[in-house]
Amino acid sequence: MVLLVTSDNEQFQTEKDIVERSVLIKNMLEDVGESDQPIPLPNVSSSVLKKVTQPSTGPTEIDVRGRYLSTASTTVESPSRPPILEQSQDETRKRTTDISEWDQKFITVDQEMLFEIILAANYLDIKSLLCRRWLQDGSQHDQGARPPEEIRKLFNIVNDFTPEEEAQIKKENEWAEDR
């Protein structure tokens, strides 16, 4: 067991194999060696850590970087499924089921928590962070492209295109819009 201390000073007793999903913690443990000292996580709150380390529902092996971002990868996965690396076929199939269940739960997490989880997973260097479909939480747009206005609202982004620039970009990709 490893003792973790979050930014809000809560202590977590966590299984070693679970915390070692985090490359950050794994490296820390290797540096420190066997020790009862708590590991401080000043950038992670207790509510987020619970989400990230939940052994039953948390994602485990999904590489957010995906195969196209990882040049070392040789597996081919359909982009509609999360890319899974370093696993046997059987395991991959099992995981895929686990993931879709987790995916469902993940989508029900509110939007702010989603951003916090992403940040925490980035800080902890957990490959298993899942952000697939996270923009589809309303699942209203499963069939086609979500309008850019909605994305801007979600991310609090200001449209900095002129109408002419927008029209030019649209021209190239209009063929792929819903029809």
Partner: peptide, 23 residues
């Protein structure tokens, strides 16, 4: 992080919508 998120969008969203959001 944004790149990771975009990489997991459905292909249509990434192609059609993402470039229209902002520069």
């Amino acid at each position: 992080l944004l790149e990771l998120i975009l990489a997991h969008l459905p292909m249509r969203d990434l192609l059609v919508t993402a470039p229209l959001v902002c520069k």
